[in-house]
Design a protein around this nucleic acid. Sequence first.
DNA 1: GCCGTTTTCGGCCCGACTGTTTTCAGTCG
Length: 575
Amino acid sequence: MPIHNADIAAIFGEVADILEIQNANPFRIRAYRNAARQIQGMGQEIRTYLEKGNDLTRLPGIGKDLAGKINEILETGHCQALDKLRKQSSPGLIDLLHIPGLGPKRVHTLFEELDVHTPEQLLRAARDGRVRELSGFGEKTEQNIIKNIEEHIKHKQRIKIAVAGQYAEPLLDYLGKVKGADEVVIAGSYRRHKETVGDLDILISADDSHEVMEAFADYEEVAEVVSRGNTRSTIRLKNNLQVDLRVVAKKSFGAALHYFTGSKAHNIAIRRRAQERGLKLNEYGVFKGEKQIAGKTEESVFKAVDLPWIAPELRENNGEIEAAEKNQLPELVELADLKGDLHAHTIATDGHHSLREMADAAQEFGLSYLAITEHSKHLKIAHGLDKKQLLKQIEEIDALNEKLDDITLLKGIEVDILEDGQPDLPDEVLQQLDLVIGAVHSQFHLSRKKQTERILRAMDHPCFTLLAHPSGRLLEQRDAYDVDMPRLIHHAKERGCFLELNAQPERLDLLDVYCHMARDEGVLISVNSDAHSVNDFANLKYGIGQARRGWLEKKDILNTHPLNQLRKLLNSARQ
DNA sequence: GCCGTTTTCGGCCCGACTGTTTTCAGTCG
């Protein structure tokens, strides 16, 4: 049974959880969490990393001890330290830790004093009024525990960034109109363009916080005011989304924006840097002794710690600080850099609009070319095209291009990759197209080896241009299929083909770490809308957000090239 | 458990809010 990075990260995460309940040294706990994050975000398998002769202790946050444990896990599939910890703990306790309002201290007390092991047991104890008897707990805490467990059981999920935007933008407008509110910004993972957000973090600069806080609590979609202070309040919206609001003075806005944008790991690293320079960084500014020396803008905060401004999408403490130090930060791609879109559907299959309507909408969006890439016949649910139907569409596109002025339609297909790696349509029709997108839409549960070989074989087809949604994941719905992505990326480089970053908010696939890896390998990425309607081009902004998280620059993106250059690139992939 | 231009020990980011307390611990971000 091969061990993947996610397995190692899960083991370290569980070690950290149990240590937390045991009231272990918080820095030891953090070390395990850092290591889990480091390994999870590596992009390449630890096994491969070692096979290349690399030393684990060179990874940040991995020392001699953790390197030993990683080796142990790779060899045996187990971690003795975790097995031992499990014997001292109970699996439900970890669930307790994940309930809001319960941290290690309280879980520890509840376990020791009430013999509570699971959320269900705690709920019973709280309803029986046994929790309020404990020292440090009271009636209010007991009520909160009941409420939070009930919420937890319904399980609050992270929501997709596009959904969060539907709630965030109107709230932003509303707050912007409040008297005294100066700047209003959504910070947090939303600003970092994460695929999903757990809550919204809004920051406002205002000299008087009172009116802003009033207005926030009075917002029409508020279900509950969770906490309320002079500078910070939390509400829960009717859809269950939690929103934190922070109000600061103008002179602190940049420092607060940096603090509130995160990530946590990035903030810790930057604060540590401040400390090394004899400075103190908090959300009010950068201080030398009592004196504020920076913090009005984010730029001033970075400058105070001898760094250029770092784009929010990069702030994961994943190499961005080192890159900034050497002045090697990427010049991240922007939405306006896109010249076209290479993946779209029409009413011929499962789209909602005609060729003409899609062309007009793409042009309206500012694109100068659009590839029409319908599904192929194997995908019956989407009315995939057979050879005859595709030939007919090719004619229609040629005819329509005659009439179009400022946009060109490209002829393509999103062809199913069959289980044996063959395309779902014959070569003689594929050869007539400008591009062929290969996609996996079936047999998601093949073994890693079979799935990888299937896709490698598909890439080797002489007409293959581009791999659609490479991991196959659907956020909150379906996990990625098991595939050796670094190998696919490497093969794409050797084969001279491309990978897609699918911009649909439920896909956002390729993942950021693999975008970064593709960039390092020199494989161009196509940021595509996969539009099924005229409104879907708007999703390209989420794709660009994801590309930026993957450190991609304009030059790393296939469809930032103007049409004539793009055609050359597409032809270069053809064998 | 990690780390080092304070290098093998002694640090490890920093502040707001709540609830239970009469001055602060616990949790969160």
